[in-house]
Amino acid sequence: SSGAIIYTVELKRYGGPLGITISGTEEPFDPIIISSLTKGGLAERTGAIHIGDRILAINSSSLKGKPLSEAIHLLQMAGETVTLKIKKQTD
């Protein structure tokens, strides 16, 4: 049976990049997913974020019904501590 787990990851960026690339579309209900991780970057080092994971919220702002451009804007405005709500498929 296919299921999913949902969890929250807190990234402290200390002025540096998060080390993630996200992808999606401008269709508001398409998923926003992690499309790549910078090798040795902040997100990869947590061990908790993987390519293909879906981002449900950024700093408690839900991405439900929001296009990719809004998600990118939220990441850019997120500040030093970025909290990502992640949904991972478990097959």
Rank of each mutant, 00 (worst) to 15 (best):
A4W: 14
L56G: 01
S61R: 14
A4K: 13
G24D: 10
A4E: 06
G52V: 03
D30M: 07
G41I: 01
I32F: 08
T21C: 05
G16P: 06
K66C: 08
M77G: 12
P67W: 03
S69F: 07
T25S: 13
L37F: 04
I72N: 12
E26M: 04
G40M: 05
I34Q: 00
T46S: 14
G19Q: 02
K39A: 11
I55C: 02
S60W: 04
S36V: 02
K12C: 05
L37I: 14
I20L: 15
S69N: 06
S35E: 01
L37K: 02
A78D: 06
A43T: 05
D53S: 04
P17C: 13
G24I: 07
T21L: 05
S1L: 08
L42S: 10
M77R: 14
L68N: 00
T38Q: 05
P31H: 08
P31S: 13
E27R: 11
G40C: 03
T25N: 07
A57Y: 07
E70M: 09
I5P: 15
E26Q: 09
P67K: 11
G16M: 12
I33L: 11
L18K: 01
R45S: 12
L68D: 02
K12L: 05
G47Y: 01
I5H: 14
K64D: 12
L68W: 00
G47D: 04
E26F: 02
Y14S: 15
E44Y: 06
G3V: 09
L11N: 00
S23C: 04
F29K: 12
F29C: 12
G3W: 10
I20H: 04
G24C: 04
S2V: 03
D30V: 06
I33E: 12
L68R: 09
L42H: 11
L56T: 05
I32P: 12
I5S: 14
P17N: 13
G15W: 09
P28Q: 06
R54Y: 09
K66T: 09
E10R: 06
L11W: 08
N59W: 01
M77V: 13
S23F: 03
A43F: 00
I51T: 15
P31W: 05
S23V: 15
R45V: 05
R45K: 11
S69E: 11
G41K: 03
A57R: 06
A4G: 15
I22R: 00
G52C: 03
G65T: 08
F29P: 14
Y7A: 13
G24Q: 12
L37W: 02
G24A: 06
R45M: 07
E70L: 11
G15H: 09
G40K: 03
D30W: 09
V82F: 15
L18E: 03
I6P: 06
S69T: 11
I22F: 08
R45T: 09
I5M: 15
P17M: 07
G3R: 07
S36Q: 15
K12H: 08
I33Y: 11
S2C: 09
A4Y: 14
Y14F: 15
A4N: 15
D91N: 15
T46E: 09
L56S: 00
P31V: 11
S23M: 07
Y7Q: 15
G24H: 09
T38S: 13
S36D: 15
